[in-house]
Design a binder for these strands. Structure first.
Lengths: 225, 225
DNA sequence: CCTACCCTTACAGCTAACTTACGCCTTTCT
DNA sequence: AGAAAGGCGTAAGTTAGCTGTAAGGGTAGG
């Protein structure tokens, strides 16, 4: 899962980047609306965390602009102002959630989880493919309800694949989903992850199909379970 | 386990904080409804002890507000008023228990234990993992019914792990469960607790698994029970 | 048959977690 | 009250295993 933080206060921004990074999100950070707009158009994000008070283009304008373009990306608004009018305006413009500073990281993280879940799944049930289940909140994968041990990278990869089960995902998309701008991985890193993950989920009836030249696709095994 | 006390009478509040603190709960205290709401949204509590007569937002309003948000946190109501109407209203609003002042600390502590047990476990069975048992009420751990000596920190850690057995618990979550606002622990304090606890429960068939980068998980040993 | 593209294995660096030791503080016993 | 004991948290050094790269072999498509 990949997040964009739009926040000009560097103290807050750094805290968010660190905390959400520790929660296994890939996190990018920009400091004003124009950079944010460019980032959203250039890359695929699952969620934008947006401060309202920004230079060059304020958060309301950015949000309004996105929705006029019919961009459905989930947006969580941060603001120091507590008045009802602001809140109503933001929600009317299409914000998905609203949090007033000062806030605690735990609550932010909970809301982030909820938003991603809502936007991707519409529910909080564990993801399932064949006998393979993934409990996203607890970062716990299991086959026939027997927990299996996956590393952090492997869990993130599996989550990415399961979120778009049955659809082809390009290696670049996987790369973007796992890494932020700071990181840069070699050509075949994804191939290695897929290989390791395949070995671990092999007995489950879930299969990672290679689509040569295009990417990978997660599917239930075609032969009987 | 972490509790929030919402009580404007400082004499009572201090008594509760001290008594429950001695019972090894992490206890925070606020004096009105607005502070309480913010605290509940910012931090994770296992139980709220709520006085009905409060400034700025009274206990009923707070409770009603929480339940409208579908917040499932356990709430124990304290009040000086004894009339049935109040009691019925509180329980209809979703209070889990109700205690009339003046009360005895022992009874309060018993109800607190019961509520936490009910909300966390859904039953009254003692916590068990392999041959390791934990009697939450008496803060007593035993292996094959032989009591073992654990320090307060160790018992609290074990309780936290056993309450979510089989699920991954992040170090930050453990930290929150053990500490209130006043405390601040260093980076590797949790690692040291885990190390000490592991040495003591090692012979029991309960195992604390490390999931690198994500947290810890309590499980029964994989070889025969 | 050739060329991308992918699979597989092996290895080395690095960071998170483990382990030990020490000093402070609280509790308890005399 | 003074002393002894043990719990508690920090710091420092060590270990372990995840991660990413590289290298070599295989395969599908042209």
């Amino acid at each position: 899962m990949r997040l964009l933080i739009v926040e000009d206060d560097l103290v807050i921004a750094n805290g968010l980047v660190r905390a959400l990074g520790q929660s296994q999100y890939a996190v990018d950070h920009v400091t004003d609306g124009k950079q944010a707009l460019r980032a959203i158009q250039d890359d695929v994000y699952d969620l934008v965390i947006l401060d309202l008070g920004l230079p060059t283009m304020d958060g309301m304008q950015l949000l309004s602009h996105l929705r006029q373009q019919a961009n459905p990306i989930a947006v969580l608004i941060l603001t120091a102002r507590e008045d009802v009018a602001t809140r109503v305006q933001a929600l009317d413009l299409g914000a998905d959630d609203f949090l007033t500073k000062p806030f605690h990281l735990e609550e932010l993280e909970a809301r982030v989880r909820a938003l991603i879940r809502r936007s991707k799944l519409g529910n909080n049930l564990p993801l399932q493919c064949g006998n393979l289940k993934l409990d996203v909140a607890n970062k716990l994968a299991s086959i026939n309800d027997q927990p299996i041990t996956l590393s952090a990278r492997e869990i993130n990869l599996l989550e990415t694949l399961m979120m778009r089960m049955g659809k082809i995902i390009a290696k670049e998309q996987i790369m973007e989903s796992l890494c932020n701008w700071d990181e840069t991985l070699g050509d075949n890193a994804i191939e290695v992850y897929v290989h390791r993950l395949r070995k671990k989920i092999e007995p489950s009836g879930a299969h990672i199909r290679t689509v040569r030249g295009l990417g990978y696709m997660l599917e239930a095994a075609h032969n009987g379970v």
